[in-house]
Design a protein around this nucleic acid. Structure first.
Ligand SMILES: NC(=O)c1ccc[n+]([C@@H]2O[C@H](COP(=O)([O-])OP(=O)(O)OC[C@H]3O[C@@H](n4cnc5c(N)ncnc54)[C@H](O)[C@@H]3O)[C@@H](O)[C@H]2O)c1
Ligand SMILES: NC(=O)c1ccc[n+]([C@@H]2O[C@H](COP(=O)([O-])OP(=O)(O)OC[C@H]3O[C@@H](n4cnc5c(N)ncnc54)[C@H](O)[C@@H]3O)[C@@H](O)[C@H]2O)c1
Lengths: 227, 227
DNA sequence: CGCTTTTTGTGATTCCATTCACATCAATTC
DNA sequence: GAATTGATGTGAATGGAATCACAAAAAGCG
């Protein structure tokens, strides 16, 4: 039960999600076929990339005919196990947990938050939306709904102990919002989402960009001066 | 004002954030010096990686003596512009926006959400925490606080129009929670955070892992049968 | 049916991030 | 103060992901 776990989610997988979102939109618009370059320009990648990604996930189209949107979406559903329901538990019904529990897009993708848990008895009284249970019922619910994946939205300080408990009860994958590196055995998938870092990254690049723009202007100025 | 924007945040930068979080923890514990391999084992990377990353950001230590934690943290603060305040606006005070507006870690890192905005007059009446303004005051606030970065937590359907407005008023970087690809000019930094995808990735890898484990067991069985 | 056009699928190539290997430097020991 | 030890810092090697280039397949057309 140890070893730091970096989240290792492939870029190609993230792109596949992009393609799928795009395909769903096109389908709604009544489109039936796409070419790799259509998807490419919609998602901001190259058409080679699209085809290479499809190739990696064994998705194939019709030479010359492009791809059939329905077939493509079906294939993706199978790949992503969206044909079966995926039951999820959410731990920590604070600010973030509450927002996540109300997010309807999860359900629309067959990801059902079947129950939420909180240590705070006051939170357990909430009666709108998804039920909030005490931590003592964790095992019962995980077993009943064959839950394999959890969302963790508890404070930093409790994150590790909660994770240990989750794994003891059979959880195999966790989306972790607490800004700590969890120690788990390597067969457990951890995906760390650190919103502070995401924001700070943007600030960093914005400052850098402004500096670069500044330099560009300087260069222009210099060029002007030469002629 | 067009061109799809993928978020391009370097892994090395993300690791630097990891190191920093780790250093802050160590400092609290009263530690004053670290070696690259200390940081490495704490963050689950190799010590080469740590040194290479530091080298990329021009952070340098003492040969043989390792790194001085205070010096390191100061250097990082400078790199990340944490010595100055960074003013942020948050658009969309729905479920997610509300949670984010209450998140105290932003402030602790000198990232101040100076104001939030919502189109809904009802939301504008909220009087706890950060003020919620109507969109008509966007320009005024952005100018007054020299805001360069925004958090976007509005519905998918409004995301693009709000982004256009933000950029018109001088915003240069956006953390976008709406699951759409925003079209912006290439000098604007976009960081897309798609929580559905993050969750779905975990589900995908968990299923895959279970399959792999299954195979491993099969192999064991097979080996047992041979002898 | 064979020729042309169009798009896929993938080996070959390039590019970039990580890892390796070691020269360099600072501290410590004798 | 020379020798030794233990760390950094960085070019070189490696590996993996993105791009390129083109052969193969399907559709259309005379
Ligand atoms: N609020 C945000 O927008 C935000 C943004 C990014 C990251 N985060 C991170 O997400 C986590 C939750 O943030 P939050 O703002 O919702 O905090 P919060 O304090 O509002 O909520 C935490 C909840 O977890 C519960 N809890 C505490 N210990 C528990 C335990 N051992 N078992 C079960 N439940 C427990 C608490 O009762 C509380 O309801 C934190 O780690 C925070 O750093 C929050
Ligand atoms: N709730 C979540 O946990 C969650 C998780 C992941 C992603 N998201 C995404 O974040 C966004 C917000 O989600 P939410 O659950 O908070 O939705 P929500 O409907 O609760 O909140 C959206 C808010 O934006 C405001 N708004 C709408 N149009 C606007 C405009 N043109 N200008 C300013 N404000 C406007 C609305 O009045 C509302 O208060 C969505 O795109 C959603 O897909 C939400």
């Amino acid at each position: 039960m140890n070893g730091i776990t970096k989240s290792v989610i492939k870029n190609s997988l993230k792109r596949i999600f992009l393609y799928r979102a795009c395909l769903a939109r096109l389908k709604l618009m009544g489109v039936e076929k796409v070419f790799s370059y259509t998807l490419a320009s919609e998602t901001g990648v190259t058409s080679d990339q699209v085809r290479k990604d499809f190739s990696e996930y064994n998705i194939r189209g019709n030479k010359r005919g492009g791809y059939d949107i329905n077939g493509l979406l079906e294939k993706m559903e199978k790949i992503f196990h969206r044909n079966k329901d995926n039951n999820i538990v959410l731990i920590g019904m604070g600010n973030l947990g509450l927002a996540l529990s109300k997010y309807s897009k999860f359900v629309r993708r067959n990801m059902n938050v079947v129950a939420t848990f909180d240590i705070d008895p006051f939170k357990q009284k909430m009666r709108s939306g998804i039920p909030v249970y005490s931590m003592s019922r964790l095992k019962e619910i995980i077993d009943r709904f064959s839950v394999k994946v959890a969302i963790l939205a508890v404070p930093e300080i409790s994150a590790q102990e909660v994770v240990d408990e989750l794994i003891r009860h059979g959880i195999k994958g966790i989306v972790n919002f607490a800004p700590v590196l969890l120690k788990v055995s390597p067969d457990v998938i951890i995906n760390n989402v650190n919103l502070c870092d995401e924001l700070e990254s943007v600030i960093y690049y914005v400052h850098k960009q402004i500096k670069v723009d500044g330099l560009k202007n300087l260069e222009l100025l210099y060029r002007d001066m030469k002629y």
